[in-house]
């Protein structure tokens, strides 16, 4: 993000060599007045992947240009390869036991913390989706608010989903029969190509709220909000590897994730309609849970439970009644 004007008061006391010889009356507040020095060089951000809690470059060394809605160049994003997808699955698998083993209440707390971190970056998200989608600033801000609210919505679910979809089943015998939902495992998520932030949040949060870990392929056209979301995830107590974000060609990475035997679920939301059937066929080879894309998905509507229950298994235990 480039800032046209830079506040001047944030430097003098932070630099020891400037503060070495204090003036009798203390340092002058405006020792480096704005505009006095030479023009400032742009500090551009290198957009990288988010894998295992770290921000690596693509192992392939490739990147691709990301353009805004009006065709202007925004940044270069990493072009992830199948080996990046492989590494991301390894990271997600390693994180699964720890994440699923946390108490539901603790997962909810951590998800709420993510929402807190996103709230502090609202302006950055709004600017990014305004550039990516070519929408007005106030519209972008409303979408960001909806995305943060969506995350808060799912932060409430981890310790409630078991009561809603699990329970004590009525049986005609001297035993209890209890069903509880359990996470499916590692879920590969193809993020929606539209709605780069609200849609992204709406597919990631339900998957991890219930204890799954995920490998997300960000929207090919607008990956930058996903990488900024990764920066919020990285500072919000979410263990590394629970969410892994890849940027690149969905059509290149998705077949490898769909056929990967260590991936347990596949969310095809962002798959191109003509490719979804082939991906579902590949996923069937290892009996993955698959969530099919819905072309008319309305991201502003009440999300319901469908995205959480799609990646849950039901464990039922029988227990004799005590006397």
């Amino acid at each position: 993000m480039s800032t046209p004007e830079r506040p001047a008061a944030d430097t003098p006391d932070a630099q020891p060599h400037l503060a070495a010889a204090p003036e009798p009356g203390g340092p002058a507040p405006d020792r480096l007045p704005a505009g006095a020095g030479p023009a400032r060089l742009a500090v551009r951000k290198t957009y990288k992947l988010y894998v295992g809690g770290a921000f690596p470059r693509s192992e392939s060394g490739r990147c691709y240009p990301v353009t805004g809605a009006h065709g202007g160049h925004l940044a270069n994003a990493a072009l992830a390869s199948r080996k990046d997808a492989r590494d991301a699955v390894v990271a997600a698998r390693a994180a699964f036991a720890g994440w699923a083993g946390r108490t539901a209440y603790n997962r909810g707390q951590i998800l709420y913390r993510v929402a807190e971190m996103m709230e502090g970056r609202r302006a950055q998200y709004a600017a990014e989706i305004a550039e990516a989608d070519g929408i007005a600033a106030d519209h972008a801000d409303r979408l960001v608010c909806a995305a943060v609210d969506r995350w808060v919505h799912y932060a409430g679910w981890p310790d409630k989903i078991a009561q809603v979809v699990g329970g004590a089943n009525p049986v005609s015998g001297p035993y209890f029969n209890l069903s509880t939902p359990e996470p499916t495992g590692v879920v590969a998520v193809l993020a929606p190509q539209r709605a780069p932030l609200l849609g992204l949040v709406s597919v990631i949060a339900p998957v991890i709220a219930t204890g799954n870990t995920c490998v997300v392929v960000a929207a090919e056209r607008a990956p930058l909000p996903a990488l900024t979301l990764a920066e919020a995830l990285a500072v919000s107590d979410l263990p590394g590897g629970v969410v892994n974000i890849l940027t690149g060609r969905t059509a290149e990475i998705a077949p490898h994730l769909a056929a990967h035997a260590d991936v347990n679920g596949l969310d095809l939301t962002g798959a191109a309609p003509e490719e979804a059937a082939e991906l579902e066929r590949a996923a069937a080879g290892t009996l993955k849970r698959v969530l099919r894309p819905r072309p008319d998905e309305d991201w502003t509507a009440d999300p319901g439970l469908a995205r959480m229950t799609a990646f849950l298994e039901t464990k039922t235990v029988w227990h004799p009644v005590g006397r």
Partner: peptide, 9 residues
């Protein structure tokens, strides 16, 4: 096979 295997198998 060309696809990534998993330890479950």
């Amino acid at each position: 096979t060309g696809s990534y295997p998993g330890p479950d198998y």
